[in-house]
């Protein structure tokens, strides 16, 4: 019964990085399993020895040796200091290599598509600068092709996490952070903000849709045909604190919007987009 629950319940792990849908998440999972394996050897002796020792030398067990004045042994000291240190040295080498290999700023091989993400309360704006389109709360990416995501925030600090694709990075106002990832195959995945940012936090989730090359092209054509335009006024409305019931799409974007959002926040601490609108930024 309990076992069934465990097995059935462990299905939830398919939602996370242990069921990767891209090369970065796959490498992360491998590293996770590898460290778990090493650590089992480290924690195993303690987890077994502590209760065993207490039980074996319990007071009622009068046949055991009692050495109240025994409190030091060089060989034991060596055993408890040296092997753990060596394991940490080994893990450190491994950690140094993988932190660089899986650095979120490190570009993936191949021609990456450039996307810019702006964290707003309580929604995500995705701008496709080359394609000149934008979406809100839906990130559409071509499967099998690397994505280079630039992030900033139009409001407080947030953190983007797409568990099956890649780990998180903070989005901070006035700054640009980066994330490189890729989806192996077409599919839909969950994306979320995991840094608390107010009453709409739990609703700030979005769908990541990885489309095949052809489907992605069709999607682009369809979205470009839409009349909505993301200019300063539209951005100001969007940046107000609100949750959206459904994703939005913009057929055109004012050029350089992402850079100006950063610049404006550095200067004025703009929030909720009011300062941007007041300056008439992004007018055609």
């Amino acid at each position: 019964m309990a076992l069934c629950l465990m097995l059935g319940g462990c299905g939830v792990l398919h939602r996370g990085f242990l069921s990767p849908a891209g090369p970065v998440a796959a490498a992360t999972r491998d590293e996770f399993l590898w460290i778990c394996l090493v650590m089992l050897f480290v924690i195993g002796p303690v987890v077994i020895l502590a209760p065993l020792m207490a039980w074996y030398y319990r007071l009622a067990n009068t046949r055991r040796v009692y050495r109240p004045q025994w409190g030091f042994s060089w060989p034991l000291e060596g055993l408890i200091w040296i092997p753990p240190s060596l394991i940490v040295v080994g893990l450190a080498v491994y950690l140094w290599r993988d932190t660089h290999r899986l650095d979120p700023y490190r570009p993936l091989p191949g021609q990456a598509i450039e996307i810019q993400a702006v964290a707003l309360d309580w929604k995500w704006l995705f701008i496709y600068p080359t394609e000149g389109v934008a979406t809100v709360n839906r990130l559409v990416i071509p499967a099998g092709r690397p994505v280079h995501l630039s992030l900033t925030s139009g409001t407080v600090m947030q953190s983007i996490l797409m568990p099956r694709l890649v780990g998180q990075i903070y989005a901070m106002a006035g700054m640009r952070t980066q994330l490189n990832f890729e989806a192996d195959a077409p599919g839909t995945f969950l994306g979320e903000n995991v840094q608390f940012n107010g009453p709409g936090f739990q609703d700030q989730r979005f769908e990541v849709a990885a489309l095949g090359a052809q489907a992605f092209g069709q999607w682009l054509t369809a979205i470009r045909a839409r009349p909505e335009r993301l200019d300063a006024a539209a951005y100001a409305t969007l940046a107000r604190r609100s949750t959206l019931s459904h994703p939005l799409a913009f057929g055109a974007v004012a050029p350089g919007l992402f850079g100006r959002i950063i610049a404006e926040t550095v200067r004025d601490g703009a929030h909720e987009g009011h300062a941007l609108a007041a300056r008439g930024m992004g007018q055609p």
Binding site: E31, F32, I35, L95, R101
Partner: peptide, 11 residues
């Protein structure tokens, strides 16, 4: 381990 922290932080 930073690469693992990226996916587990804030969860």
């Amino acid at each position: 381990t930073p690469p693992l922290d990226y996916v587990l932080h804030n969860t």
